[in-house]
Nucleic acid binder design. Structure first.
Lengths: 331, 331
DNA sequence: TGTTTTTTTGTAATCGTTTACAGATAACAT
DNA sequence: ATGTTATCTGTAAACGATTACAAAAAAACA
């Protein structure tokens, strides 16, 4: 591999001069600059980013830590992050934590060991509750889950409000025996649960059932099957992420219960399929791409100016009402 | 940040000794080893991977280049790759090429500049046709698309055969006016087209329509809309990736044509939603996770032993017959 | 002209590791 | 006792860039 030394030699200058030319520093004569650029071109020289990273104590990489890239929510977020990173000459390290604090810790260490410039990070519940204990010194933007302690930038959606709105909608449609499926490991799940309960309370009702589940379709499926066989059967189910929602739909289908008459179904996250199934599903659509973009933008700004005040951006989810919950009105 | 020097000082030894202890090299007395490990523990020392990468001329990173992580096929593959990478102490660089040769080139350069240990890579058509021109010196496993020239490991599915089988199935169901939607930029699309045509030819038929489209739902939607309005309307549509398939389904729904009677629909890639829509869709399921795992395994083996002969693994897709194409038999 | 300032370039230290080499000590064989 | 080998440890040179510093050359100024 050709190094800066080869270029220097070919151009008959010192490595310092080559470096200066490439960094567009002042104080290089046009004639020399020309010679260096020619040598660079001729040799096809490309600076070694590892060496640069070591010397500069600054890499052009950023880490993205999500629970599972297969969750469509994170897929979209990651794509947005990558787009913006690419535009700004950053490269992306990707890690899946599986909501596993141990894996999360290992990844955080790894990111630090690689000296990433910044981090976008969806913490596990444990991590978000003891955020300062992580001892993160890397500029970080937290997404999807609020953290209590610690100075850190965040971009979130108002989970409580979104779940409240969705529940409210179910109640307005005349459903009364509501069951909720929530993510077990994340604060997000807890917040959505609170919104769910709040709406019910305001109508003088109590939740019929609440389940906290790992983020797998299978989990949603099995929980729903159980719910449908239980004695007072729910007349509506709210699933707070797309995986649980898919599982719930599958179970309802299998049970042969007509949607939305016998049972209502609503959930979180707009995906390819929510409008395509029969009947189309009522969901809260999170502005996933926007979340990723915003997170990366905030990170770039902080890298630019570390003294910026910490900011918390809350984006609104959008309620998409579809037939899966339209029991009364003939729409 | 504490460096190896601090550890050496704290333990009263040289940095060389510390390095030897941490690398588990022989020739270190148990007593010294103990002292070093204590110092490491006490100071919370972690080796700087950038420095190590520079000195060793070998990083523990691998690059994954796909066209779009939002394509469920690549999402799954990437998850498999990441899992195995994690197990082996590698970190993953992720890049989306959007089937754009220029972006692809930039990413390949970036990966080289970062001195990644290896590459898993789904090349654009241009790249796969002129693979040697890329001048890749990094150990590489190509996925999803075959490349003609060049010594390189590959893991693929037999696209021609899979498309042939799927088309065959449509013909057996009595569909005769078939239209095909193919990915425009990838060799994969071409191969599937050939399988499609081959099956038709064997039945003495010609394709009614073939469209080459970018990998967006919208593209599949618009193309299908146009097909359905054209004069001799197709009685079955084959969409060769999940995005085009989703678009086609949407258009058929809107047109109010009953599936599978008025029109048959089949496609590639099993996703969350293909079994959930009404009617469930007939698809070729690619063993996505297995593809990613195999690719990473092959890469690890090549890193282990660069002199291995080049291998090409072809996995079989699985035909999942569902109601969207069952015109005659009452299943 | 000599002095000061500005521009241009090179030398060498540095980032944090690994590792070739050599020196020191101990163990063993002759 | 002496040579040979094995074990342990440190010194210093890499890896490939950036950059503080100094020196040299050119330009500006008095």
């Amino acid at each position: 591999m050709t190094s800066i030394k080869d270029v220097a030699q070919a151009a008959g200058v010192s490595t310092a001069t080559v470096s200066r030319v490439l960094a567009n520093k002042p104080y290089v004569s046009p004639e020399v600059r020309q010679r260096v650029l020619e040598a660079v071109e001729r040799l096809g020289y490309r600076p070694n980013l590892v060496a640069r990273g070591l010397r500069a104590q600054q890499t052009n990489t950023i880490g993205l830590l999500v629970s599972d890239i297969r969750n469509p929510y994170f897929t979209d977020v990651s794509r947005a992050v990558e787009d913006l990173a690419y535009e700004h000459g950053f490269t992306l390290f990707l890690g899946n934590t599986d909501e596993n604090p141990q894996k999360e810790t290992l990844y955080l260490q790894s990111m630090r060991d690689h000296n990433v410039a910044g981090l976008i990070f969806s913490p596990t519940r444990q991590a978000s509750e003891h955020f300062t204990a992580l001892g993160l010194t890397i500029p970080t933007v937290v997404i999807d889950r609020a953290v209590r302690e610690g100075d850190v930038d965040m971009v979130l959606i108002d989970n409580l409000e979104a779940a409240y709105r969705l529940t409210q909608h179910l109640l307005e449609q005349g459903y009364t025996r509501l069951a909720g499926l929530f993510g077990e490991m994340s604060v997000t799940g807890r917040e959505r649960q609170r919104g769910f309960e709040k709406a019910l309370r305001e109508h003088g009702l109590a939740p019929l059932q609440m389940r906290f589940l790992p983020p797998y379709i299978q989990a949603g499926y099995e929980a729903t099957r159980a719910l449908l066989q239980a004695a007072p059967r729910p007349d509506a189910i709210l699933a707070t992420n797309s995986l649980l929602l898919a599982g719930a739909l599958k179970a309802i289908r299998e049970a042969g219960l007509p949607l939305p008459e016998a049972i209502g179904l609503a959930g979180f996250d707009e995906t390819t399929w929510t409008p395509l199934v029969e009947p189309p599903l009522t969901v809260i659509a999170q502005p996933t791409y926007e979340i990723g973009r915003m997170a990366m933008r905030m990170l770039l700004e902080r890298l630019e100016d570390p003294n910026l005040p910490y900011r918390q951006v809350i984006l609104k989810g959008q309620l998409l009402v579809r037939r899966s919950t339209l029991r009364c009105a003939g729409v």
